[in-house]
Amino acid sequence: MPGRKIAILKKKARWVRRQILEMCACVGEGRVASSLSCVEILVALFHGRILRFDPANPRWEERDRFILSKSPGAVGIYPVLSDLGFFPEKEIDNFCKPGGLLGPYGGDVTGDIPGVEAVWGSLGHGLGVGAGLALAGKLDGKKYMTVVLLGDGECYEGSIWEAAMFAGHHRLDNLVGIIDRNGICTIDFTEKCLRLDPLPSKWRSFGWDAVTIDGHSYEEIFDSLADLRNRRSKKPLMIIANTVKGKGISLLENNPMGHIIIPSGEQLKKARHELK
């Protein structure tokens, strides 16, 4: 990965973070901290062109299927998709407004946000649906990859482990999960309320390859996803991306109660300054 490209993506991530803050602050809705932790992942997948897509033709048959299963991170992907031209920029201004496309945990019920297969408000669904898409791809001899972004708190859901077993058994090597491992669920640190670790060995025992990376490092994100289409392993791949919840805004960073905070007043001014 050339340094110049990384510099561009870093700049893009700062812009996305500012957008997240402004969207949420404007309407007093959305999960700022959860969206901030997965920014580099989303920017790498889309602006970094890890995924195959065509903004002019969002339903392109050959596109990779991306599911944003950690719905509190939904606000993070809107600026990314809008910036790439999947939908007009005015939809960002219309966030949470009547007639708008975008809500805090996804869009309208049909899930038709161009650029993603789905953003689901309810947790624990995306990996199983992704497994269904990946299995269909294999049965039909399609080349697309299916990538699912999960939250770590989401991994409490039993359905995640049902899907883990299913994808491991069926050797869905065209399925990739990424866990945004920011270590905090809604009201506390995950390891304090109900232990999730050790995540990599859990996934391996379910028949997956699992790697742990720094989810804010483009080098590590690209390294882990570089050979996505040419992996020699026949197992599905889980990337545990260690991240900082609230990344970029000191009020929210690693704050166990930061999940629901939307900076306002002086906090907002300070947050804006920090994200410059």
Binding site: H125, A131, G132, A134, A136, D140, S159
Partner: peptide, 15 residues
Amino acid sequence: AEQNMVNVAAGLAMA
């Protein structure tokens, strides 16, 4: 595993 059965069914239907 009925939850996953429906989720997988949804993925297949989406395809």
